[in-house]
Simulated assay, not measured.
Amino acid sequence: MSTSPDRNGKRSAEPGTPRSRDALRAAQMYYLQDLTMNAIARELRTSRSTVSRLLSMARETGLVQIQINNPLDRAPALEREIRYRYGVEAHVVPVTDLVSDSDVLDRVAIQAARTLGPLVDSNAIIGVAWGSTISAVSHHLTRKVTHDSTIVQLNGAGNTQTTGITYASEILRRFGAAYGARVEQFPVPAFFDHAETKTAMWAERSVKRILDLQHRMTMAIFGVGSVGAGIPSHVYSGGYLDEDDMRILSESRVVGDVATVFFRADGSHSDIVLNERSTGPELELLAQVSRRICVVSGETKINGLRGALAAGLATDLILDERSARTLVQHS
């Protein structure tokens, strides 16, 4: 049997192997034919414990997706309200007020990974922005076989303390492994010291190749950075910005960023000085990608999220229930 490590380091069957076919067969019997695990074990001539493991595998690998329709759930109403106000497809993750910020992030990341899977197809070029939220999403991706697909890094990750390669490449590697896609890194700093350096680098053929891939993206997935987030955005906590940079952001009334490109509450961004040195994609380019999936966890990111929505950066929004309530109540 051919196996490979899953996101938790365990061994899981490759698609098309006898074990994956058994998992699909067991799932069909259990969920569609209402057979008991004992009955499935007899039919497959195996043990009940093996059937239990096959059903777990079917859920973990995305063969089975479980949906609960609760008529008393507030999430669908919030999703409709967000869709009406902002024109995006919303996926609201139910959470209570007692759940910690880190647990909220984990639940949002799981939902984002499950939402993303069915949208990924062969011949796709998927732009991925590094950050705390997308890093969490990358840990929960379920495997899906695609062909001739590419994962491209949206913005550089280096700063004066680190190249950022290890951090960003791990996120990209998980996306590539999940979808059997080629990974294209962007080995430049997050911010150049001088705008002139960026202009010169953007004329280099090795860099232009990555920029060309970004221009041909069919999908982008990103979080929203915010200075005061409950779980600090990596760009603000990882040594990418010094005191002068933070002062400039404050004076420019910046509320957040996507892929290290900053914007104000009304979505404006073209005259923000730091964007001239940022290696993130031009927001006008990002707004032209056909599918743009924004993942947000935590109410402290709402101002940044409003700015991103005002700039038209998202077609799909995945966020927790508390943040969704804040978004619609204070619009």
Rank of each mutant, 00 (worst) to 15 (best):
N8D: 15
K10I: 01
R11F: 12
E14A: 09
S20L: 05
R21F: 08
A23H: 04
Y31R: 06
T36R: 02
R42C: 03
L44T: 01
R45W: 00
S56K: 15
V64T: 12
R74P: 15
A75L: 02
A77M: 11
E81M: 10
E81G: 02
Y84K: 08
H91P: 00
V92E: 04
D106I: 05
A109L: 14
A113H: 08
V128E: 01
W130V: 04
I134G: 01
A136D: 02
H139W: 10
I151K: 02
N155Q: 12
N155S: 15
N155T: 12
N159S: 07
T166R: 09
A178D: 00
Y179S: 02
Y179N: 03
E184G: 01
Q185V: 05
P187N: 13
V188C: 06
A190R: 11
F191T: 04
F191E: 06
E196W: 09
E196Q: 13
T199I: 09
R205M: 13
R209C: 03
G225W: 10
A229L: 07
A229R: 10
H234R: 13
G238E: 08
E243T: 11
R247L: 14
I248Q: 10
S252L: 06
V261R: 15
R264A: 10
G267K: 05
G280V: 12
P281K: 07
E284M: 06
L286H: 00
A287T: 02
R291N: 13
R291S: 07
V295W: 15
T300S: 15
N303M: 13
G312R: 03
G312F: 06
I318V: 02
D320F: 05
R322S: 06
V328H: 02
S331K: 14
